[in-house]
Amino acid sequence: MITLNHYLVLSAALFVMGFAGVVLRRNALVIFMSIELMLNAVNLSFVAFSRQFGNLDGQLASFFVIVLAAAEAAIGLAIIVLVFRRRATVQTTALNTLRDATNAS
């Protein structure tokens, strides 16, 4: 029998994996995929709660999150392409023009 807790544990695991990917990986596309993973974890927990309560608010929310993720993908990929055309790399370590310049005067 699969209970609410199983879904929640899976959702939390997906979310943590996504966040770990954002923090640990250096490739912009992989970071981007990790963000999508976090959003899908959110979807799973919304739908699980919705099923538990028997009200549709949660399912509605997950539809909106899917739309939102698609819009984010459109803009995010455009920005990544923009950066790639400038620098020919999507490694985040290469993006270091903007930083606190404390010693230089």
Binding site: A28, I31, I35, G76, I79, L82, R86, T92, T97
Partner: peptide, 11 residues
Amino acid sequence: RSGEAAFKYFL
């Protein structure tokens, strides 16, 4: 610089 700022803000 503008592209880099957009990238950081987005992520």
